[in-house]
Amino acid sequence: MAGGADNAPALEGRRRGLAGLIPGSRKRSRDLALIWLFLAPSLAIFAIYRIVPLIWNAVLSFQFWSPYKPAEFAGLYHYEEMLFYDDAFWQTLWNTLIFMASAPVGIVFALAVALLVDTNIRGRNVYRTIFFMSYPVMTVAVGIIWQWLFNENVGLINYVLIELGIIDRGIPFLESFDWALPSVILASIWQVIGFYMIILLTGLQSIPPSLYEAAAIDGANALQRFRRITLPLIRPSLFLCFVVGIINSFTAFDLIFVMTGGGPGHATDLLITYIYSIAFRLSKFDYAAAITVVNFLLFLALAFLANRLAGGEAGAVKTGG
C-alpha cells in the first residue's frame, strides 16, 4: 500500500546540489520539512475537529460540568442515570437500532434497481440519474417536502391511500406514535437509495462477464447465476451499503429535526437528535457527552461487524500505490 514511491530526492540531490558535493542531506531535510508542512493543515483540522473532541467527549462524560461551573469528577454518575433512570435514552437507542435495521429494506430495493439499470437497455443513464438525484439535495428541504406529503388532511400519500380505498380517512402519520418512525424512515430511504444503487452498480460492473458466460454454458439459469455469482461477488458492496446505512442514522438529524422534531413524545428521536436536545437545549453537555460515547461505540461495533461480514473490504479506501 505505502510502497512504490520514489527515491527521487536522493537522485535529485546528486544531480542538482553542486554535482554531489553536498550529499543531499540538506535537500532531504528541506524535503521532509516541506512534506510535513503540506500535511500540517489537514492534520491540524482533524486534530481539532475529530481527535481532540473524541477524547474530550470521553473525559466530559465522567465529569460534572457546565459552562457556568468548574469541572468535577463524576465517575459513572451519568452512565448510571442514562442506563437506569432515563427511559427516553432507551427509547432513542431503540429507535436508532430500528432506523439502522431498516437499511436492508432500502438496500434490497436498490439492488433490484441496480440490476435493472446494469442491463444494456436504452436510457439507462437517465434512470441512474433519476434514482441518484435525491441523494445530493438539501436534506432540510427533503424533510419539508415529505412532512407535507405525509400531511393528515391534504397530504398526497393520504389522498392516494383514500382513492385506492385502503383507508377511509387521513392518517396523521407524523403525529401518530405508531406511524411517525416508519414515515421518517421511508423519507430517509427515499433520499439514500440512489447512493446504495451507485455502490451496488459499481460492484456489479466489476464482475467479469466471462463468469456469466461460463455459467450459462454450463447450463446455470438466471436465478442460479444470481445466487452463485452475483451475490457472493457484490458482498463487499452490500456491506458497504450497510455501513452507509449506519452512518445515515447520524445524518438523519436534519430530516428528523424538520419533520417531527423527535416527537410525538420521543417516538422519532434518534440518539443524535436526543444528544442535540440535551446538549444545546438543556445545556447538559456532560450528560449528552455520555450518550455520545454510547452512540459512537454502537457505530464502531456495527461498522466493525459489517466489515468482518464483508471479508474486511467494506469501507476500505483504495490508497493505491
Binding site: 505505502a2 520514489d6 510535513w36 500535511l39 492534520l43 475537529y49 467527549n57 444528544i275 464502531l300
Partner: peptide, 30 residues
C-alpha cells in the same frame, strides 16, 4: 505529501483512515 516517502508515513495514513471512522456528529459537543 502522501505520495512521497518519509518517516511516519504509515502512521499518518493510519491516522487518516481512523479519522474516517469518527463521524463528525459524535464530536459535536467538544
Amino acid at each position: 505529501a502522501l505520495t512521497r516517502d518519509f518517516p511516519g508515513k504509515g502512521a499518518t495514513i493510519l491516522l487518516f483512515l481512523s479519522c474516517m471512522m469518527i463521524p463528525f456528529q459524535v464530536t459535536i459537543i467538544p
